[in-house]
Each structure stands twice: as C-alpha cells, then as structure tokens.
Design a protein around this nucleic acid. Structure first.
Lengths: 247, 247
DNA sequence: CATCTGTAGATTGTCAACAATATACAGAAA
DNA sequence: TTTCTGTATATTGTTGACAATCTACAGATG
C-alpha cells in the first residue's frame, strides 16, 4: 500500500516535471543559473551554438529562452550582434534601489499588521545567524542570509505580484553587485535588521515601513560609496566581446 | 543642402528601425497590440500558425515573441496545449492594485519635491479634459485620460525602472478590466485627481503620497464592487478554447 | 605608418520539415 | 442513452539547413 502511494506520488511528480519542462524552460533555468552563479559575468556574450551544445538541444529553444530572459532584465539583445549578460550602470542600480525601498516600505507596513508568531521566529533565527556570520567575518554567508531575510519579509507579505516584482529587481541588483563587487557594512546592517523586526513585532505600521525604506536607502548609500571607491582603483576595464555602450 | 540633411536624417531613422525591428520584435508588438485592443480577448487561444500567417512570417519568430510576452504577464503558456491570453483573477487584480498603490505613493512623494511648472501645467490640462469628458458622459475618453494622467505622474517621477514596472502592472490590470468591464465612478475620481495635483503643487510630500495611495486603493474598491455586481449578473461564462483553471 | 577595402569565416535571423502530443469524433460496449 | 476506446486530424515542440549580417584580418592605397 505505502509503496503504491509512493509510486503514484513519484508518478505525479514526474508528470508535473514533464508538464513544465519544455526544453525552452530547461534552457532558461540553466542559463539564468549560469548568470546568477557568475559563470557568465556581466558583459559576457552568450553564443547560441555554444549554449545549445552544452545543453544538448538545438538553437530554437535556446533562442526562445534568451528572449524570455531579455524581458526579465538579465540579458540584452542586439540584433545581428548577439545576446549579452546585462551590465547594470550605477544610475540604473540607483533607480532599482529606490524602487525596492518603496516596495519594502509597503512590506514593513503590511507585516506590522499581519505577521504571525511563527514568521517572527523565522526572522529572529535569521538575524541570529547573521550575528554569527558577522562574528566569523564570513561575508558570503552574511550576504546570503541578508537575501533570505529580505526575501522572507517579502514572502510573508502575502502578495505574489509583489514577490515576483521584488525577485526581478533583486536579480538585477545581483548583476550590478557582480560588476562592482561592492559590499555592505555588516554591523550597521545587522542592527537595522533587528530594529525592523522589533518594529514589525510591536505592530508599529508607520515605523516598520519607514525603517525598511531607510534601511534599503542606506544600503544604496553604502553601495554608492563602495562603487565610487572601486571605480577609481580598478578603472573601467571592459570584459571581452563587449562593444562601446555609447548609443 | 536641406534635402541632403533630410536624406541623411531619414536614412538614420530607417537604420534605427532596422536595428531593433527583427521579425520577433515585430511579432511581439503586433500580438501585444491585438491583445490590448481587445481583438484577442482574455482566455483566447493564440494559434501559432494563424499568427505567423497573418504576419507573413514563420512560426519561429512568433514563438520567440510569445515567450517574451509570457514574461510580461500578458499570456500564459501551457506545454503541448498552446498559448492563451491571460485571464487575471480578481485575487491577482487585488494584489496588483495594492502594489500599484505603493508605487504611486512613491511617485506622489517624489513629485511633491521635484515637479516643475511645465509638468504641473500638463497635469492640470489633463484634469480639465477629464472634466469635459465627465460632462459629456464619455466613459472611453475619461478612461484614456485617466491612464494618461497616472502615466504622466509616473513618467515625471524620473525613475525608468519604476516606469517600466508600472507599465507592466497597468497592462495586466487592463486585461482584468476587459474581463469584467468594470468602470470607475467618475466624479469622485476627478475630485481625487485635483486633490492630488494640489498636494503635489504645494510640496506636501507625505500628503501627496498618501492621497495617491488612497486614490488607487479607492479605485480598487470601486473595481471590486463593479466586479461583484457583474459577477452575479452574467455568471462565469468561459470563452472557447479554455480549459478548467483548476490546477 | 595610417587608413581603407575586400574577402573568409563565424554568428545570428529565418524558414520549412519532422516528431511528439493533444483534441475531436465515430463506433463499440454496457 | 451513456461511457469508453481507438483512430484521424490539428497543433505544438524540436531540429537542421539556408540566408543575411557582422567580425577579423590581409593586402592595397595614400
């Protein structure tokens, strides 16, 4: 009996996989992963033949995937020239931060009204782990936890459209981060997270929203500073396969 | 001499056209237009062969365009079944309105600080036209002016990412509106627009943001009421080519 | 030497054919 | 009649080939 349940369950699972896993979707996920992991850095050219060969498919699905990724802001398509991983200019990163701040303000206000004990527990757990990561000086772990913290907030807000929009923006910011290697100032960031969680917990609608807004905008400020510092040091080295942006 | 300038100028124009106008882009624009105009109503099935024939191209570019449109939220792709114009359920429209309210709040606050006299003039001109449309009882004209008013606000805010996000959300809301045929209560809406413009003009940052937030949320309320009323009357008639949404 | 021109190779854009899947419908069985 | 089953048809998924365009580079020209 239990084996039958298992069989049915895996069968349904496999069916679900087949339902959405066209080669186009496979290619999209795979290419997105390559970009997010940094294997394909900003400015890199995406060769259709190479990608198709790597995935073991023809160019059709790859091209469809690339057109989809263009809409998500991860790549840029130049007719007859090719597809490139987008390089987010500082001005655009600025805009994205500002937009993201507005979204998180909404999230803070909403959560101050609706958050549950279980959700609060998750937030505090993440903050605790961040403390440890800071103590260890583990930047990567902190960055990952930071993403999870904000991601959890957005998720808890219970608005899927908001979550999807937020995800898209964060993806683009991630691209920018790879460009500049900018890093936050951690201890400050952790303290702000605690204040945010506290404001949400005590139901302070306006404060929670304002704190999240300010947190994101402060993060933008730190990004700007790090960017300016690195910009002077390394100069505008441009990856191969990239043409002048002047157009 | 002037004819040469003209020739060069039109030449550059034609070149610019050719640069972006791959058949894929052409197909995307054309299909999007068909959806927005209502020629392809929500729930309608998009046949690849038919579209390709109408546009005089092969299925390849059409498929790429459809994959792009999927990411913008205008269509839904079901593997091996086809592509359908999305039907936005009321719950999703709710979410979009809430998100849009947050964005417009940001717009209001920003504009209260940055708006120029010329921009204010444009806004007042639009409001004046709305008055006339209401006096004539011209619903279509009013709706169009309403879109332009909010579009102008968003544009004036000077954040391209915000503008792009906003455009996407409004497109989806437009899809929902076609579903329900819901209409705003005009006189109330006009008064709110005037209050918003005044708050922006007098530089009241918080008030302008709050008014725009409330305006959008009130608009959502009116939408809900109209939707509920129509829902009872007409029943859930489902367009042809559509399968049960239960999955 | 610098710049231009033309050609060879690589890459993208587009198409048409084939394979895999879903849909519609006729006929059988209860 | 209703329901099931099998088959014909239509539609989507995928591929490989060809055309159009761009890039790199060698040789010509000043």
């Amino acid at each position: 009996m239990s084996s039958m349940v298992a069989r049915v369950s895996t069968g349904a699972f496999a069916l679900e996989l087949l339902r959405s896993h066209s080669l186009t979707n496979l290619a999209r996920q795979e290419i997105e992963q390559k970009i997010m992991s940094g294997e394909l850095p900003p400015g890199a050219k995406l060769n259709e033949n190479t990608l198709a060969a790597q995935l073991g498919v023809s160019r059709g699905p790859v091209r469809e995937a690339l057109r989809a990724l263009e809409q998500t802001g991860l790549v840029r398509v130049e007719k007859n020239r090719g597809v490139f991983v987008r390089q987010i200019p500082i001005e655009e990163a600025d805009e994205i931060y500002e937009l993201r701040a507005a979204l998180e303000q909404m999230v803070g206000s909403k959560l101050a009204r609706t958050i549950t004990r279980g959700q609060l527990k998750e937030l505090h757990a993440l903050i605790g782990q961040m403390d440890q990561a800071v103590a260890r000086g583990d930047l990567d772990a902190y960055h990952s936890l930071n993403l999870r913290f904000h991601g959890a907030l957005v998720e808890f807000a219970g608005n899927r459209k908001l979550a999807e929009t937020y995800r898209r923006l964060v993806n683009e910011l991630n691209l920018f981060r790879k460009n500049t290697l900018a890093q936050d100032h951690l201890p400050t960031s952790v303290r702000e997270h605690r204040n945010i969680a506290d404001a949400i917990e005590s139901g302070k609608v306006e404060i929670a929203g304002a704190l999240l807004y300010e947190h994101v905008m402060a993060s933008r400020e730190r990004m700007r500073i790090a960017h300016a510092a690195l910009g002077k040091a390394s100069g505008p080295a441009r990856p191969a396969g990239e043409r002048s942006a002047g157009r």
